[in-house]
Design a protein around this nucleic acid. Structure first.
Length: 267
DNA sequence: CCATGTACCTGAAGGC
DNA sequence: TGCCTTCAGGTACATG
């Protein structure tokens, strides 16, 4: 479920709440959620920082790390009045008495305990919104690749953070057909795509992410960026630009929404 | 290198 | 009502 804007929203919310606090204990309610690759204990450690790379949340502790991936239905939530504990897979208890709940209906999400973040992040590309993802860098990544552009965006090894919703929205705005061959797209249009990626992700962050069904922020609130989708989940409806019916196909194993008139296919 | 299918899981929605 | 299929903000892995 959550892509870069949703993860960023959660990180911004939990950073001030967790920073400087100490972990008292953890409860594991579904074994596979917690992937322990460290010999260090967690109890008693202080939280130094909370950051993000792509869709990974990185919690830096004194000399060790917790790295969280929400996958499809994961939620990181502080307990609130009327909090539904159903589907809670892990609980991080703080010494100040607060608890951070990891709720995850489909059980795909993971919390890794590692001493070196690279053991989890080694195959993850530069974050799409990182300053290091410059236009020049992006043009180099795209060069000579033969996979289709939707698969390129969904892969996390080139740039990270873009998922199925925002890939479709970015491609629409850039006027690019999702099955275009990456290396065959004119430079000018790649530059346009580069700018749309930054725009779409930042716009979604400004709107606290998108909520389709499961996504909630750390305080249980929905996002609102879904109100502005131009193609995602609009199959059969009229394109806002030209009126043609939005189509849905399967690309790179995922449902893919696009306008055949507005999005040009380069092969 | 790239495409496709499967696996991991639960639940909602649609067809009959 | 119920049974069956398909689909879902993700990713790892196996196979041509």
């Amino acid at each position: 479920m959550p892509e870069l804007p949703e993860v960023e929203t959660v990180v911004r919310e939990i950073l001030p709440e967790l920073s400087g606090q100490f972990i008292a204990d953890i409860d594991i309610l579904w074994e596979r959620t917690f992937q322990n690759k460290s010999l260090e204990t967690l109890a008693g450690r202080q939280i130094k920082d909370v950051s993000r790379q792509g869709k990974y949340i990185i919690i830096e502790l004194s000399s060790t790390y917790l790295i969280i991936h929400l996958r499809m239905t994961g939620q990181l939530l502080f307990s609130l009045d009327g909090f539904d504990k159903k589907h809670v897979r892990m609980i991080i208890q703080l010494k100040n008495g607060r608890k951070l709940y990891f709720r995850d209906v489909r059980k795909f999400g993971r919390i890794y305990h590692v001493d070196d973040p690279q053991t989890v992040l080694e195959n993850t590309g530069i974050d799409a919104l990182d300053e290091a993802n410059t236009e020049k860098y992006f043009l180099e990544l795209v060069k000579n690749r033969k996979l289709n552009i939707k698969a390129f965006l969904l892969s996390q090894k080139y740039i990270s953070g873009v998922g199925n919703i925002y890939a479709d929205e970015c491609l629409f705005r850039a006027g690019l057909h999702p099955e275009s061959v990456t290396g065959k797209i004119p430079k000018k249009r790649i530059k346009l795509l580069y700018n749309e990626i930054k725009y779409v992700l930042n716009f979604a962050i400004d709107n606290m992410g998108s909520t389709i069904s499961d996504y909630r922020d750390a305080f249980g609130e929905s996002g609102s960026a879904q109100k502005f989708f131009k193609v995602y989940q609009r199959a059969g409806q009229a394109c806002f630009e030209c009126g043609r019916e939005i189509r849905k196909i399967k690309t790179a194993g995922r449902g893919t929404h696009f306008c055949a008139k507005c999005q040009k296919k380069y092969v």
